[in-house]
Nucleic acid binder design. Structure first.
Lengths: 190, 190, 190, 190
DNA sequence: GATGAATGAGGATTCATTCAT
DNA sequence: CATGAATGAATCCTCATTCAT
């Protein structure tokens, strides 16, 4: 029973993310999402309170997944810089393998919807990453900066660059990638 | 015969930008925009073919204004780095004085609307800036990078940081600003 | 789950026919039709794809009903002329008892809407009637004429005359009716 | 001066008839008509009180022209039957040379618009034709019938047949035409 | 006389959501 | 739990008409 439910929730989630990425929040109507998910519109309301809640949930889940994916394996790295490089490469891999996740998050983050989300819910997602940056700063590896600024400086450009699309110079070879990480690192290095 | 009024176009433009920033593309209905602009809904259609065209026009105008504002006075700078620092500070000043412009552009850029815009129209806006980066690279000041990547690395983090809001560590003192530019510059410096 | 209601479709159909007859295709807005049918505007779209489809459906249904009504009982007539007289009287009776049907069909048929209908759909409706005329011609009772011409010559004047309204000489007594049929018959009789 | 005015009125009239035939009363908006006529929407209102009046005027003018065209040369015919045959052939020629006239009239006549027209205005148009039928009846050539019924019986089928379109058996050779007139005449002949 | 700008009212249609099964 | 029917409110947009020049 529980499995079947979670499956259906997944179908709805995936359909919603896909359609919202294709058509925007407005264009992706509940009916279209329902049809794409193979369920009745009414069924969506068994899993989500309403459209706003659904979108917020999607964002929080995707964002959490994104950061979890970035942190994957970082605890096996000995050095702080190694952890960050690992996270950075994870991020790049995710942008390649699951571009719809970041795309959705960015659309949401840059829309007015974001203001209805209590910031703490987002902060909590970032806390493992924040710990790494705090350690880096404590070790004097990076400049003393607010976490958000440091994080943004390291990971922001990669996200932005990947948005550009392949024809605008997105890096693909390992060397280009290393260069890009080096650039990011240098910007925050103490 | 009455004559078409540039002022009226401005009213509509401003109202549209404000409402879209507040409520998103979907929430900002043509009626609401009309009311906020003090005109009839039908009047908007004298100035813009339809909502999609209007939003695209707004984006192109705002983006062009943004880049023009960034380039302001750069020709008076002797060095390439000076030009870029000036542009960078212009950007910061614009983010402070007219935050709605960048906000709108980012919402548009991260939405599916962007895909309906021919990329050349955007490229054209960036061309003066691209010239500066080309010169920088020619002088060996910065690493050899595709323009979009280099531009993003220099100006991207500032935009991202300013989106965070004051409580998340947005820099305000001149020293903090200088630090931020230094970080951006170092990331691309040869 | 509620179940789609044939009765509701009827309500919509009747309201639409009535309003279109009263106010024309343009005047009969979907909202007015909905109100007259006692349903929400949105409900109409559960039963008809859009206004154009609705009007076409109405035409095809009414036209089919009209021809079915005309053919009623003709198979009990021994002679071809008897069949045609019966059909002719059926037509007259229908024009009296359900004038809105012919009125709607004529409005549709004389409007540009008709051109969106594939002619075969209409031809099919006429096929039983065409068979009778073919038999008449085979028996040498009527002149050799294309079906549409023969049909029009027999039934057309009656329809036209009934449109005139009572004050313009619409026949009412059985004698007048017999005269009119005799006129129609003579025009095509061999 | 006067010429120029009448010219412009003609342009508007022709554009309106054409568009209404193509798109129906609703589809042919005043703006579209204005554009097709090469004038401003406001200009139409210098020549016609409003859309309803315009459509009515068009109908009355076209209908009057139609009947004038039918009557052309009938006074040179010696016999009543000759006059009617001439009118009938004129009608056929007009249906071929200026189909838009009859088409417009039929669309109008079969729409609810017609009910806003005082019947006398129409009757007056028919009066010369009515005189011919009265003479025919006085001479005992045709059955005693209300004018409208007789007229309809003679000319109605031709109009209906021409509406069918060439693929449905519209007559084209002189023999077919003679047959058709013979049919019409027989139906009313005493 | 002629214009194009301007408009409020209303058009067809779709929306997020709820109801009844 | 799941559904498709049902809906009032809202969508974008166009209309017939008038205004100011």
């Amino acid at each position: 029973m529980r499995v079947k439910d979670e499956e259906k929730r997944q179908q709805i989630r995936d359909a919603a993310v896909r359609l919202i990425n294709e058509m925007g929040f407005a264009g992706a109507s509940m009916s279209k999402i329902a049809k794409a998910a193979g369920v009745s519109p009414a069924t969506i309301y068994l899993y989500f309170e309403n459209k706003e809640h659904m979108v917020q949930s999607l964002y929080l889940e995707l964002k959490a997944g994104l950061l979890q994916g970035m942190m994957a394996g970082t605890d096996q790295e000995a050095t702080i810089k190694g952890k960050l490089r690992r996270a950075w490469r994870n991020f790049h891999a995710l942008l390649i393998s699951r571009p719809e996740i970041y795309r959705f998050c960015e659309q949401f983050y840059n829309s007015p919807y974001i203001r209805a989300l209590p910031p703490e819910k987002i902060d909590r997602i970032y806390s493992p990453m924040a710990a790494v940056f705090a350690a880096a700063e404590a070790q004097g590896l990076i400049r003393p900066l607010p976490f958000a600024v440091a994080f943004t400086s390291v990971f922001g450009p990669l996200g932005l660059v990947m948005k550009l699309g392949p024809q605008n110079g997105v890096p693909s070879t390992p060397e280009e990638l290393d260069t890009l990480f080096d650039m990011a690192w240098r910007s925050v290095a103490a």
